[in-house]
């Protein structure tokens, strides 16, 4: 396999993403963890771009960084007091969890590397955005409507629960 410019880009972005992800789970400061999280989200967005899933890349930024990460940062700020303590960030089972995670990755890697995927080498010619849009209102119209209801429910519920008394 020839290593090209794209491979390098991929490796750089992947490394960035993983470092950020590690930062999320290892950082001792919750706020820093959330910043790492934003980094990881951004890295994943770029990865989507490398797979020509542009819409998803943008949606990733919009939803994950613009909404979810903001919400997380926001809640961290609202509950500011909890970060002042110097208590450890991890619980008693962190050791086991680490072992589990490493083992899991090992197994997954081992399995994944053995597989010869039936990859279809094909350039994307169609207008993916249009395809996505059409799919959402034809084949996927039922889930689309469902998630509309779900989002309204979640919205109302979240407001109801988080409202000050």
């Amino acid at each position: 396999m020839e290593i090209t410019f794209f491979h390098v880009i991929f490796l750089v972005v992947a490394a960035f993403t993983l470092v950020c992800a590690l930062g999320v789970v290892l950082s001792r400061n919750l706020f820093h963890a959330s910043i790492w999280l934003i980094g990881a989200f951004a890295g994943v967005a770029i990865l989507y771009w490398t797979m020509e899933a542009e819409y998803l890349a943008i949606a990733q930024i919009m939803v994950y960084i613009g909404a979810i990460a903001t919400l997380i940062v926001f809640s961290i700020m609202l509950s500011r007091g909890m970060m002042l303590g110097r208590a450890p960030m991890n619980n008693f089972q962190s050791g086991i969890s680490a072992v589990v995670a490493v083992l899991l990755f090992g197994i997954l890697a081992l399995v994944l590397l053995q597989i010869n995927w039936p990859v279809v080498q094909q350039a994307i010619t169609s207008d993916q955005i249009a395809q996505l849009g059409e799919a959402l209102v034809s084949t996927y119209v039922v889930p689309f409507q469902t998630i509309a209801v779900l989002l309204s429910v979640a919205l109302i519920g979240a407001i109801m629960i988080a409202r000050e008394h």
């Binding site: 996927y140 039922v142 889930p143 469902t146 998630i147 209801v149 779900l150 429910v153 979640a154 519920g157 979240a158 109801m160 629960i161």
Partner: peptide, 18 residues
């Protein structure tokens, strides 16, 4: 469909959390 499975399950869950 796996999508509906996930959607249904999460819908149930999220509403239940609330």
């Amino acid at each position: 469909d796996l999508l509906m499975v996930y959607l249904g399950m999460e819908f149930v869950s999220i509403t239940s959390y609330i």
